[in-house]
Structure formats: structure tokens, C-alpha cells
Design a protein around this nucleic acid. Structure first.
Lengths: 211, 211
DNA sequence: AGCTGTGAACATATTCACAGCC
DNA sequence: GGCTGTGAATATGTTCACAGCT
């Protein structure tokens, strides 16, 4: 077993590791081992893809048996960098921001809410999921002091770029953007975009073609 | 101009068409034409990819000039099947379901909320975004009567598969799943999954590697 | 016998580079 | 001159098929 894994994992595989983790965690505690066949069924993939993906983590399966479920969970978490909870800030306390803050799964997924911010003075001071909403002006100092690297943007589209610029200047290097706007970010800042309209429109394409 | 476009558009391109649409719509009304270079900058892509993607829609650009912005919007909408608003049902009135229902962009994106459903009697009858929450028991009849094809699932993970089975039995063929569970769906049902934990975990991978 | 790990074959997606047209 | 449209080249991702280990 190598001390450090120097294999670069393909993007497509990285994007599936959380899926494997979710499937493994949803299995009954009694299941000690799991085969690529079983995992593939749970994840709606084929077994060869599962094996190839897992092979990038190193050789953790046993031929003739399968993978040790809990050990595999740990390997995936380690590979994803989920060793200790990442503190995350949420910016924008609208419907969506509140909903995400109230989502109870942050801890289990490997994250903790470090702060919730809004620019609207009427929202500052209100409580969302046990967190007192802070003024957006406070954010840069907090991010620097607590060495926070990740942020979730749930502001209206018009404010998203401006918010991102402030976040990046404060040292944030990973952004999950729920605002319906494309963010311009410099090299070294990873940004993912989740958009309801986009998802529905992709479904619409395939829907229109089968109807 | 061909009456019908018989080119099959690659999945990767389909997934970017909504992005182009968003960028084109975010441009100033005064912009009559747009070059692949400009559109690429707005979408964070390179011009060659933009041109190849748009070429699958047919030849709508003018050499030396660019694309007519509004005409291109229409072409993309037509290709995505966004000719008249698709009625969509939302199942699950938790924080996220309410947040999505209150998202004002359904109409502009090409969709309309046809109904909001929950299995909890305490929620049935309450009003969310001007829609009275219906009992989940009513859903199959409504879906059939109104010929609804698309659904959004925002239930807890434990209920998602059961809800999906009912939706599919009622005739739904496109599902956008926000519940943290992998859905098993038959051939002919298109399903997309949006998951907060997954997105954060993917970011975590790259974050851990640059820190 | 059963299941992993992986090279090789295949499929899809991206980028280049330039001909073609306005 | 400038920008599109696209074949060819490259890169990435998926699947097959089987050797190799338990």
C-alpha cells in the first residue's frame, strides 16, 4: 500500500465518488462487503466503471470477495478530502439560502456551517438554523480569521458576481453558486454552478424528443 | 433552412444550451449580434466549442458578423423544446420545496407550476407561492388529466423512491430529484439528480489538493 | 468459482487550424 | 478583415474481456 496516492483521478471519476459514498452509506450495517456489481446497481452504473473508478483509489478490493464497505467509505472520504469538516459560509438568506441552511446533512457530508450572511439590514440578526445572520460586511474578516475556504452563494442573480468578488478577495477558493448567473472567477478558484432552470431545460430537451 | 433538424445533438452540447440561453438573455437589448468569442467569454468557454455547439442547431451565424442574438435565443429554445411552458409538479413541501416554488423564474425558463403536493395532512391546504398544497393522493389523477410530464421531487430521502414510483405510474417521464437518494427508474424515464452534499464534496476534492 | 484490476478497443468530447463567405 | 463552420487531431471517458488472485 502506497503511503500517498500519486495517481491523478479523472474529473468524471471525482464527480462519481460522492455517489459511491452515498450508496455505501445507505446500505445496511450488516453488509460487510460489497461487490462492484452490487454497487453498480445502487448507483445506476455498470460494474466495470465502478471497478475502474475505485482502482484510482488504490487496490482495496479482494478478488473473489468484493470491497470492505466501511474501509471503502473511509478511502473515498480521504480521497475527497473529507477528513475533518470544512467550514462553509452561506451568503444570501432568501428562500433558498434558508432552505440550504436548514438542510441537516452538512455534518454527515463533511461540512459545517461557519456563518450565514446577508447584505439586507432587516435580515441581519434574525436566526436561521440556530445561526444568527451576520452582516455581509463582517464576512471578509470572519473568513480570514477562521481560515474559511468554501462558500455557497444563494443571492439574487444581480448580486452574485459582486459577492463572489468579495469572497475571493477574502480568500475563498471554492464556490458553490446557486444564483442564476455565470460567475467570472480567477485561476485557482474552483466554482460549481447549480441552476434549477438549467436542469429543467435539459430535461425538456429529452422530454420533447420522446413525446 | 431545413424544416426539421435531424442532427442528433451530443449530450455535452445539450447540457450547455441552457447556459448559452442564459448568457444571451443577460446581454443588453442593444446588442443585436454576438460573436462566438463574446459568448464564450460570458459562458467561460472557448470560442471553438461555442461554434461547434451552435453548429448542431444549424447554420445560423453570419461570417464576419456573428449570430443574431434574438434569433439564436429562439433557435436554442426551439431545440430545447421550450415552445410552450411545460407544466411541472413539485412533490414535497419542506424548506427546499417551498424555496423552489417561490423561485420566480419558472415562467421565464419555460415552465409553469401545475401543482404542489405533500403527503402530510398538516401541510395540505396551506398556500405556497399562490398555490394551495394538494394531497399527494390527488397527484396521479391530476397528472393524467392535465397530461403533465415533468416533476420535481423535494421530499426527504426516505420517501423519494416511493414518490418516484407513483409519479412514473401516473405517467411522469422526466424527474428532477433534489432528495439525497439515487432513484431507480425504468427505461424511458429521464431523471436528473441535484445534490448539495455531492457538489460540496466535489469541491472538497479540488480544495484539498490546492491547499 | 468468483470477483477484482487493467490493458486494449471503442465512444464521446474538445480543440486546432483553416477554408469559405460576408 | 473578421468571424463562422467544420474536418482532422487530440484528449478524455467508457466498456470489453480476460488475466490474476483468493
Amino acid at each position: 500500500m502506497p503511503l500517498v496516492n500519486h495517481v491523478t483521478i479523472p474529473k468524471a471519476t471525482v464527480a462519481r465518488l460522492p455517489l459511491y459514498l452515498q450508496c455505501l452509506q445507505s446500505m445496511a450495517d450488516a453488509e460487510i462487503t460489497v461487490s462492484s456489481e452490487t454497487l453498480a446497481q445502487l448507483a445506476n452504473l455498470n460494474p466495470a466503471k465502478v471497478r475502474k473508478d475505485l482502482s484510482y483509489l488504490g487496490s482495496h478490493g479482494v478478488r473473489g470477495v468484493g470491497y470492505d464497505r466501511l474501509h471503502l467509505c473511509l478511502q473515498i472520504k480521504r480521497e475527497l478530502g473529507l477528513v475533518e469538516a470544512w467550514p462553509v459560509v452561506i451568503v444570501g438568506v432568501g428562500n433558498l439560502g434558508s432552505a440550504l441552511a436548514n438542510y441537516g446533512g452538512f455534518g454527515a457530508a463533511g461540512f459545517s456551517i461557519a456563518g450565514i450572511y446577508d447584505a439586507d439590514p432587516k435580515k441581519v440578526g434574525t436566526v436561521v438554523d440556530e445561526h444568527v445572520v451576520q452582516s455581509f460586511d463582517e464576512l471578509p474578516a470572519d473568513v480570514r480569521r477562521k481560515k474559511i475556504a468554501m462558500a455557497i452563494i444563494t443571492t439574487p442573480a444581480g448580486a452574485a458576481q459582486e459577492v463572489a468578488d468579495v469572497l475571493i478577495a477574502a480568500g475563498i477558493t471554492s464556490i458553490l453558486n446557486f444564483a442564476p448567473a455565470v460567475l467570472q472567477t480567477p485561476e485557482g478558484v474552483e466554482c460549481r454552478h447549480v441552476d434549477l432552470a438549467t436542469e429543467l431545460q435539459i430535461l425538456s430537451y429529452y422530454q420533447a424528443r420522446q413525446a
